[in-house]
């Protein structure tokens, strides 16, 4: 892809710092997205007999995205930036993982059980809070919040849809 051309420019012997891998991946992703949008907007039609078509504005935006990603690629080859400080992978994995599980089981287990387990995981296992404190906060955050929202704020939250729990209306 177009990413290749600038690399040849900085071939000279000086050992310049090279762009970080995460930056390269991001640049490729933005470029691909931009090209996809350009293609998609052409499909939608830039212009109709009535005037501007559905694809005109996305086309312009896809063009901006592609162009800027290209400039970024060039900039990065000349003067690689240092990405921000490293992130903590365990934190990310735990939060994303638990949220994905939560969102998946929410319709089945209902808000109260799912959130009770979610909060217990974060408080008892991750934050290493004592059992009593963890339980109190988790119950308040699941059962308590459920009733606060459904009764107090009239905002309905999901209830369990599978037998043992749905029978008792959790």
């Amino acid at each position: 892809m177009t990413t290749e051309s600038p690399t040849t420019e900085i071939a000279p012997t000086q050992s310049r710092p090279r762009p970080a891998r995460s930056v390269l991946i991001a640049q490729a992703a933005f470029l691909l997205l931009g090209l996809y949008v350009l293609y998609g907007s052409l499909e939608l039609g830039l212009w109709t007999t009535l005037g501007p078509g559905a694809g005109l504005f996305p086309f312009a935006m896809g063009a901006v995205l592609t162009l800027m990603s290209l400039i970024w690629v060039v900039q990065e080859q000349h003067a690689p930036s240092t990405p921000r400080e490293e992130v903590e992978l365990s934190q990310i994995a735990a939060v994303i993982g638990s949220l994905l599980v939560l969102a998946t089981v929410l319709p089945f287990l209902g808000f109260q059980i799912a959130l009770l387990l979610f909060l217990m995981y974060h408080l008892r296992i991750r934050a290493r809070l004592g059992w009593v404190k963890s339980l109190i906060i988790s119950v308040a955050g699941s059962v308590g919040v459920f009733y606060l929202f459904t009764l107090g704020l009239k905002v309905s939250l999901p209830v369990a849809s599978i037998p043992p729990f749905s029978l008792i209306g959790l």
Binding site: L115, R126, L129
Partner: peptide, 16 residues
């Protein structure tokens, strides 16, 4: 960590 857990709780409610 306790604050984060509670903030996550409200994010899930907000999004849902």
């Amino acid at each position: 960590p306790i604050l984060a857990a509670l903030i996550l709780l409200f994010m899930v409610i907000g999004a849902y």
